[in-house]
């Protein structure tokens, strides 16, 4: 064992001369260029492999089916291209400097005391500032355009859906259609939807990746997620913030259908034997895991309001609840 250790140490034994002189390596292992090429090959191969692997898979953020998600994807591309303007030169410089100025390359110039250059330094303070300037404009505009609280302009009237995060399931209430569901929802295609979100449990986050954007669900507050699906299909939504033991099972399906199919669904839902009122709501709100899809009629239109108001300062309730902002933050 000891011999092995000694051998290992010998293989890579460095001798330092006194102060400041160059270090001399006793033995050279695999040439650097081979290692470098090997490394680059691995990375390129992995990237190609990954692209091939993802063909036919559901890459939600890159395959949006909602107007918001589509715009977000465009901004992602712009930001990536802007970043590349800095990142690619950095990568090239890093690797070429590392190769060119290795200590055994005696052909390269060596300027040990060259330690500043006003012009060069100005460039790299200025270049990122310009890029960030451009990106800031995009950020400012997109933050307003894609603010989830902002309603989406459309010829169709907006569908309101109230969403409550419970331990551990999502309750969807259709106040105008007088139906309610658990862990699934139907929405009509090409129609703006205003999800009004709250929580009667720990803070959660309501996210349907392919439609775009997520917003926190908080007790005593109402947040808004405005969305519009552009194609029919079944899309997965998730609870993006931990709310305790059963939160992993809190995903749900959003079924995007044509408008007549949506009305049909509402009609069939109305025939459900279950009714949602404040009593049955409180039973539903008890912790339960992996809850199957459920359909109910809405017997009491004030369930959502009551679920919000129970956390609110009784003295302040009315004025806060009437504001549309949802909360102070």
């Amino acid at each position: 064992m000891k011999k092995l250790f000694q051998k290992l140490a010998k293989d890579y034994y460095w001798r330092a001369n006194n102060f400041g002189k160059k270090l001399v390596r006793a033995e050279e292992s695999t040439p650097k260029s081979v290692k470098l090429i090997g490394l680059v090959t691995i990375f390129v191969a992995t990237a190609i492999g990954l692209a091939w692997y993802l063909k036919g898979k559901n890459v939600a953020v890159f395959q949006p089916t909602g107007t918001i998600g589509e715009q977000q994807l465009r901004i992602i591309y712009i930001a990536l291209i802007l970043s590349a303007i800095v990142v690619i030169p950095v990568f090239i410089m890093a690797i070429s400097f590392y190769v060119n100025f290795r200590e055994d390359n005696k052909k390269s110039t060596y300027k040990p005391n060259w330690d500043h250059s006003k012009s060069i330094e100005t460039v790299w303070w200025a270049l990122p500032i310009v890029l960030i300037g451009v990106l800031s404009v995009i950020t400012w505009n997109s933050s307003h355009q894609l603010d989830p609280f902002k309603s989406i302009a459309s010829a169709e009237s907006t569908l309101k859906i109230q969403v409550v995060s419970l331990d551990w399931k999502w309750l969807f209430i259709y106040p105008e259609q007088k139906v309610a569901t658990v862990n699934y929802a139907y929405i009509p295609v090409n129609t703006p939807v205003d999800f009004q979100i709250t929580s009667d449990a720990p803070m959660n986050s309501f996210w349907i990746p392919q439609l775009g954007s997520q917003v926190y669900a908080m007790s005593g507050m109402v947040t808004h997620l405005n969305s519009e699906a552009t194609s029919e299909g079944v899309f997965t939504g998730s609870a993006a913030n931990i709310t305790g033991e059963g939160f992993a099972g809190m995903n749900f399906k959003i079924n995007v259908v044509g408008s007549s199919a949506f009305s049909d669904w509402v009609e069939s839902a109305k025939s459900s034997p279950f009714a949602l009122d404040w009593d049955s709501y409180q039973k539903l709100a008890m912790p339960s895991k992996n809850v199957p899809d459920t359909t109910m009629t809405l017997a009491d239109g004030s369930v959502f309001d009551l679920a919000v108001m129970k956390y609110m300062n009784p003295g302040l309730q009315l004025e806060s609840f009437n504001s549309t902002s949802g909360g102070t933050y």
């Binding site: 953020v61 998600g69 715009q71 977000q72 901004i75 992602i76 930001a79 990536l80 970043s83 990142v87 990106l135 995009i138 950020t139 997109s142 933050s143 355009q145 894609l146 989830p148 986050s205 996210w207 990746p209 775009g212 954007s213 997520q214 917003v215 993006a240 913030n241």
Partner: peptide, 17 residues
Amino acid sequence: VTGVLMAVPAIDFQVHN
């Protein structure tokens, strides 16, 4: 780079958490 992406709120809404 991924940090700058997430610094844009509109993108963060898609990748947060």
